[in-house]
Amino acid sequence: MDIKRRDFLKVVAGGGLLLATGEPAFARAPKTLPPNALGILYDATICIGCKACQSACKQYNNMPPDHTYRPPELTDQIWDNPVDLSAKTLNIIKAYKSGTGATKNREVDGFSFIKRHCMHCIDPACVSACPVSALQKNPDNGIVSYNKNACIGCRYCQIACPFNIPKFEFDKPFPQIRKCQLCSHRIEKGEISACCEFCPTGASIFGKVTDLIEEAKRRLQLKPCTYYKYPVSTVTSSYKLLQPVDKYQEHIYGEKEGGGTQYILLAGVPFDKLGLPVLPELSDANRSETIQHTIYYGLIAPVMFLAGLLYAVHRNAKNEDDNN
C-alpha cells in the first residue's frame, strides 16, 4: 500500500511537472486565417462619428433602441443612446477624448472615434469556451455565428472573450446571447455588412481579410497631409473619396492580437487608449485547449487513473464490506 501511495504521488507530481514546463507534448498549432475570410477594416482617422453604421446595424439586424447612456448634461433622454455594446446594440461608436479635445486623431488634447463590435477572431475564445457548440466559426469565411438552439445560457463565452463581445439578455425570461455576426444574413444574399454599406466616408470597409490587411499596410505608408483616395463600402470599390491623410499609429490592430482577428483597425491614437486590450499573439483559446488536451488527450490519462482507482478501491472496499 505504501508503494501505491508513492506511485500515486508520482502521478500527481508528474501532472504538475507537465504543466510546469509549459511546452506540453500536445501543444496545439495556432489557427490560421480561413481561405475566404471576410472582414472589416475600420480606419478611425477618417471616421466622422456620424453613427450611420450604428443605426444601419440596428435597422438591418432588427435591434431595439437602447437608452443606457445618460450623461449628466442630458437630463431628458429617449433616443437610442447605448453606453456600450449590449444585447440591444451589436455595433457602437464610442469617443475617446483627452484634455481640450480640440484636434482629431491626437492622443493629447485630441479626440478619436472608435467602432466596436465582434472581432471575428481567427482563434476565437468564445468558440473554444462554448460547451455546446452554440458559437461556431465558419470554416470558409471565418464568421463567428451563434446558434440559439444549442445555447444553454451558461455565459462562459462572455467570461472567455477578451473583447467582451458576446452579450446576454439579462432582462428577458427566455434570453439568448447577442453578438455581431458580420451581417451573415446579408452576405448570403450577396450584400455586405450594413455598417460598411452605410458608412459615408469609407471608415469601415468590407472585404477579404487579406485585401484589407494589404490596404491597411498601404495606408501606413502614406505621408500625413497628403491626399489619398479612400475606397468606400468595400475595399475593392471603384467609388473612392479623396481625403487628407492624418498621422497613423504604426500598428494594425487585429493583425496579430490574440492570434489575429478578421476585424482590423487603424487609428491615430494608441489602441489601448481606445479601449482595445493589449493581447499576446498566442490566443487564450490555444493556451487553454493545450492544457485541456494535455490532460484529457484521448481520455488516456483519466482512464488509466480510473483503472488504478478501481483496483485500489476494489481491494480496500472489500475488507470494509466484510466488516460492515
Partner: peptide
C-alpha cells in the same frame, strides 16, 4: 437557476452539440 436557457440544458449530453475542447463541457 443560473444558466439562461435552462430548458435546453440537456444539449450538454447531446453528441451533436458537445464541444470537447470546452473546459465548461468537461466540468458540467
Amino acid at each position: 437557476f443560473d444558466v439562461g436557457r435552462y430548458w435546453q440544458a440537456y444539449n450538454l449530453i447531446l453528441p451533436r452539440y458537445s464541444q470537447l475542447y470546452s473546459v465548461m463541457f468537461e466540468v458540467a
